[in-house]
Every structure is written in C-alpha cells, then in structure tokens.
Simulated assay, not measured.
Amino acid sequence: MIYVLLGANLGNRVKTLQRAAQLIAEHVGPVVQQSAFYETAPWGVADQPAYLNQVLSVETTLPAENVLVQTQVIEQELGRVRFEKWGARVIDIDILYYSDLVLKSDTLTIPHPYLHQRRFTLVPLAEIAPSFVHPVLGKTTRQLLAECDDEGEVALFN
C-alpha cells in the first residue's frame, strides 16, 4: 500500500485532481481510499494561489522507483511544468509512504522528507490513515499532526 498526496493550485483544481486519481488507478494501481479535498495555504513560496490537496491510498505491485516514474509521467500528461521549487503548479504528486519502506536515493526519499512538517499533508492523511505509523519517526499520523508546528490553513473544500 502506498500513500500519495495530490496538489494543484492552477487551472481547474478539482478536475485535475480527479483526473490524476484516475490515471494513478490506471498506471500505478487501484485507489483503495481517498480523502476529501482540502483547500490549503501555499507552503514554501507564499505568493501564489491556494492549493487543493487530497491523499490517496493505492495498492501497487510496482517498485517505488517505478511509481515515481509513473507519477511524473502523469504530472507531465496533466500539464505540469517545473519552474521553481514549491512554486505554483497544475499538478503535484508526492509519494508519502510505500508501506513501511525507508528509501533514500538520488531521485526518491520515502517516507517523504517533509510530510511531518506540513499540515496540508497530515490533515488529509489523518482522514484515511490516522493510525499509520511513520517507519522512521515511529509515530502515527494522528500524533504527527498533533505535534506539527505548521500553522498553514487547511480547510475542507466544498
């Protein structure tokens, strides 16, 4: 089981996240659970539109590096262009967890290195995986959220 974070703050955010989930189901594996959409404050670069975020749990047989390749292909298909780190984007797909795998390579770090510092990640993750234990920090999603210092706004999107 993997957990991925979808984020978009340009274009039709809802349609983009829905299409990303559909493409993940087609190319990575079945989507088992998905959080609600959350409208969230930008993180890293403040001067940009609000994001829409969602976390998916996905069953996959692909190795972690192949999941990364597939998610990057999906980002490109949906129009992602990388201008600046943490800048505005049509779509962003982050691998948060790959079961309890701990991996650090030149191209991929799992668990995601910033997930415990970001409310926009932890709130939707806590909705679908509150008891999942971070394999490095040894804390549940609920505990990480309670300890998170990030004050960025995260609101349920209607």
Score class of each variant (00 low, 15 high):
residue 128 I to P: 09
residue 87 G to E: 08
residue 152 G to V: 06
residue 156 L to N: 02
residue 129 A to K: 08
residue 156 L to Q: 04
residue 58 V to R: 08
residue 135 P to Q: 05
residue 55 V to A: 11
residue 42 P to D: 00
residue 143 Q to T: 11
residue 2 I to F: 12
residue 57 S to P: 03
residue 99 S to D: 15
residue 109 T to R: 03
residue 139 K to W: 00
residue 42 P to I: 04
residue 57 S to H: 03
residue 78 L to M: 09
residue 128 I to C: 13
residue 23 L to F: 09
residue 82 R to F: 01
residue 95 I to E: 06
residue 114 Y to Q: 11
residue 1 M to Y: 05
residue 128 I to Y: 12
residue 109 T to L: 03
residue 89 R to H: 01
residue 131 S to P: 06
residue 151 E to Q: 13
residue 118 R to N: 06
residue 54 Q to K: 10
residue 36 A to G: 06
residue 63 P to G: 05
residue 60 T to P: 08
residue 21 A to K: 14
residue 29 G to T: 06
residue 101 L to Q: 12
residue 133 V to H: 13
residue 158 N to S: 15
residue 99 S to E: 15
residue 118 R to V: 09
residue 61 T to M: 05
residue 12 N to W: 05
residue 80 R to Q: 06
residue 96 L to V: 14
residue 82 R to A: 03
residue 39 E to T: 12
residue 126 A to V: 11
residue 20 A to M: 03
residue 2 I to N: 03
residue 115 L to E: 06
residue 120 F to Y: 07
residue 71 T to F: 13
residue 148 C to S: 02
residue 62 L to P: 07
residue 122 L to K: 03
residue 21 A to Y: 07
residue 127 E to H: 08
residue 80 R to H: 07
residue 67 V to H: 05
residue 40 T to F: 00
residue 18 Q to I: 09
residue 125 L to T: 08
residue 61 T to Y: 02
residue 76 Q to H: 14
residue 23 L to P: 01
residue 42 P to G: 08
residue 95 I to Y: 04
residue 139 K to E: 04
residue 51 Y to H: 10
residue 102 V to R: 00
residue 155 A to S: 14
residue 129 A to P: 10
residue 70 Q to D: 10
residue 106 D to K: 15
residue 95 I to V: 11
residue 67 V to T: 10
residue 114 Y to T: 05
residue 145 L to T: 12
residue 50 A to L: 10
residue 8 A to L: 13
residue 134 H to F: 14
residue 138 G to S: 11
residue 67 V to L: 07
residue 125 L to A: 09
residue 28 V to M: 06
residue 68 L to H: 09
residue 19 R to Y: 08
residue 7 G to I: 02
residue 62 L to E: 09
residue 121 T to K: 10
residue 24 I to K: 15
residue 73 V to L: 13
residue 131 S to E: 14
residue 145 L to N: 08
residue 82 R to N: 11
residue 56 L to N: 01
residue 75 E to A: 12
residue 66 N to G: 12
residue 96 L to P: 01
residue 130 P to M: 01
residue 155 A to N: 12
residue 51 Y to C: 13
residue 95 I to D: 01
residue 22 Q to F: 15
residue 58 V to I: 13
residue 114 Y to L: 11
residue 27 H to P: 04
residue 119 R to D: 13
residue 24 I to Y: 11
residue 2 I to P: 09
residue 2 I to K: 01
residue 124 P to Q: 00
residue 23 L to H: 04
